[in-house]
């Protein structure tokens, strides 16, 4: 426990704000906030943004940003939908063979990885700055999504996909399990692999890692492949939860994931950030959104609150640093 506090001292502030938000929301909704129903609905809503935030965080760790994650999530969903619809013309409702699902999912992940590969090559090998490379691929990916769907909504998917977005194992929602699984795996990758170690070092000083014989290019390539995989998983969850896919789903999530990652302690200039922080930040944003929702406040008030909280937290950090 003491060890935990020592290594996570930087997260204590965030945990404090999280607890405060929880207590305030509970206080405002004494009967409705801490109910199984509400907790479950929160647990269904948070994984999409949560997994996308992890994908954003990975890119931010090297000092970059990935503006294409929402586009990639949609692209994955649309590809899977198109493959399923092509093979099962009647609409792919109900049961689908598991091999068919695997083929469709593989296709969805493949196109996403292809884009990630392109980004990695542009950023790692051609020296394009991450914001520009991903701005370009974002436009391209969104364009491709519109092009292949003609802007329409595709819906009705097999139960196995719906299970990923709406299913439960006992009382626990499947998307939440997926989110926690992603977070755990990512945490191990970042803390215990040479890639993760190299990523933190590269994000702090790219020139020094080059001089230390670290292969920066390979690390950057892997960053964007990993970010794409996470975006695709988020795409699966979104697809299952909405039972539909469309080129412009979730566009407002993009900047929220940056906000959540920074709130969770990820540095915008790279090198610092923990998975646990990102998870806590996403949970906090969800608590605020759900609590305000129960109060009957306009959902956009939650968005304003998120912006304000980020500013307040950054301001507090600044003054605490100045005092130290």
């Amino acid at each position: 426990m003491k060890e935990f506090f020592r290594t996570h001292r930087d997260l204590l502030g965030l945990i404090g704000v999280l607890c405060a938000a929880f207590l305030i929301m509970w206080g405002c909704n004494p009967t409705r906030f801490v109910t199984l129903n509400n907790l479950r609905s929160m647990a269904f809503q948070l994984p999409e943004i949560g997994i996308l935030t992890l994908g954003m965080m990975v890119a931010m760790l090297h000092g970059g940003i990935n503006l294409s994650i929402v586009g990639l999530a949609n692209l994955t969903g649309i590809t899977i939908a198109l493959v399923l619809h092509a093979i099962l013309p009647q609409g792919a409702r109900g049961e689908a063979g598991s091999w068919l699902m695997l083929v469709a999912a593989a296709a969805g992940f493949f196109v996403s990885l292809l884009v990630g590969f392109l980004q990695g090559v542009l950023i790692g090998y051609a020296g394009v700055s991450a914001i520009l490379a991903t701005l370009g691929t974002m436009t391209l990916v969104n364009g491709v999504c519109v092009l292949i769907t003609h802007g329409s909504t595709l819906s009705s998917f097999p139960d196995s996909i719906l299970f990923l977005g709406n299913g439960s194992l006992g009382p626990v929602p499947v998307p939440l399990l997926l989110f926690l699984f992603c977070a755990a795996v990512l945490s191990i990758i970042l803390r215990r692999t040479t890639f993760g170690f190299g990523l933190y070092m590269l994000g702090t000083n790219q020139e020094a890692t080059k001089f230390a014989g670290i292969n920066n290019r390979v690390i950057l390539l892997r960053v964007y492949l990993l970010s794409s995989v996470l975006a695709s998983i988020a795409g699966l969850v979104m697809m299952g939860r909405f039972n539909s896919v469309k080129a412009d789903y979730g566009q407002s999530y993009l900047l929220i994931t940056v906000l959540a990652a920074v709130l969770g302690g990820t540095s915008a200039s790279g090198g610092y950030g923990k998975v646990l922080g990102a998870v806590l930040a996403v949970v906090m944003l969800q608590i605020i959104a759900s609590g305000l929702n129960l109060l009957g406040v306009d959902p956009f008030f939650a968005i304003a609150t998120w912006g304000a909280i980020l500013l307040v937290v950054m301001a507090l950090n600044h003054f605490l640093r100045a005092r130290a």
């Binding site: 940003i65 900047l255 929220i256 940056v258 906000l259 920074v262 915008a268 200039s269 406040v297 306009d298 956009f300 008030f301 939650a302 968005i303 304003a304 609150t305 998120w306 912006g307 304000a308 980020l310 500013l311 950054m314 301001a315 600044h318």
Partner: peptide, 27 residues
């Protein structure tokens, strides 16, 4: 004054301004 990177600051204020507008206008 807060020395927050401009991209982060303005993402935050984007949400703040836009959210407030929606609340005031009720859409």
């Amino acid at each position: 004054f807060l020395q927050i990177p401009p991209i982060i600051t303005t993402i935050a204020t984007l949400n703040l301004y836009f959210g407030c507008l929606y609340v005031i206008s009720t859409g």
